[in-house]
């Protein structure tokens, strides 16, 4: 088992994502849109403020393509 990393990460399921772009609006510190509007998410662990934004993005995603991973798996 790998060690539990502190904090959480935002992950997108790229297959489900349709590039609608809500996440980049709702979580501007975590997500930026690529040239076609699809989310680019830095793989870093989130600060408390970023996590709050990320949760908003997850709730607001029309495709339900965002996930919050609480600790890093393998």
């Amino acid at each position: 088992m790998r060690k539990r990393a502190p904090g959480s990460r935002l992950v997108v399921d790229p297959v489900t994502c349709d590039g609608i772009g809500m996440c980049a609006h709702l979580a501007p510190d975590v997500v930026r849109a690529d040239s076609w509007g699809y989310p680019i998410i830095a793989g870093d662990t989130l600060t408390t403020r970023e996590e709050r934004q990320a949760r908003k993005a997850i709730a607001g995603c029309p495709r339900k393509a965002l996930l919050l991973i609480e600790h890093c798996g393998p």
Binding site: P14, V15, C17, G19, D34, S35, W36, G37, Y38
Partner: peptide, 12 residues
């Protein structure tokens, strides 16, 4: 043609 990078990125 499922993900954005494949759908738009590669043809571009």
């Amino acid at each position: 043609r499922q993900c954005g990078p494949c759908l738009f990125g590669l043809p571009a």
